[in-house]
């Protein structure tokens, strides 16, 4: 599925563009989340094989000849955990933003010059 690969790349590019140009910190975290979704789409699309079914061997045919009938299960296992970790890391980033906001009452990243080196 080359189309899905292309969509994933475009989503990643949109995420990078947002991360580099937005000033609002919540928008930056949103951009990271979008780039993450794009990357996950790419990984799943790489494991896809045309005309095959999901890696759940719930019939005798699939159990015996699964190698010829199912898509690659390894990328799916990777993405499965990556999604859960992604949301936890996003929550941590948002927590830092809430604490920063309480210091200076601003969401604009350029107001936090004290952290620049």
């Amino acid at each position: 599925m080359t189309i899905v690969l292309g969509i994933g790349f475009i989503l990643m590019l949109i995420g990078f563009w947002g991360l580099l140009t937005r000033r609002n910190m919540i928008k930056m975290v949103l951009s990271i989340a979008i780039a993450e979704t794009g990357l996950q789409l790419i990984i799943i699309a790489i494991g896809f094989i045309k005309g095959r079914t999901a890696p759940i061997l719930n019939s005798d045919v699939l159990k015996l000849e699964g190698v010829l009938k199912v898509v690659d299960p390894v990328p799916q296992a990777l993405v499965l955990t990556a999604i859960v970790i992604g949301v936890a890391v996003n929550a941590l980033m948002l927590t830092f933003i809430i604490r920063l906001y309480q210091q200076k009452k601003s969401l604009d990243i350029s107001d936090y010059r004290a952290m620049k080196w």
Binding site: A45, F48, A54, L80, I83, V87
Partner: peptide, 22 residues
């Protein structure tokens, strides 16, 4: 793309919980 496990995770976490956290 024949990945029902990932689809369930993304629907429950990406579309549900993540939106609430934001």
């Amino acid at each position: 793309l024949a990945a029902p496990d990932v689809a369930m995770t993304e629907a429950a976490i990406g579309a549900g919980l993540s939106t609430a956290i934001f």
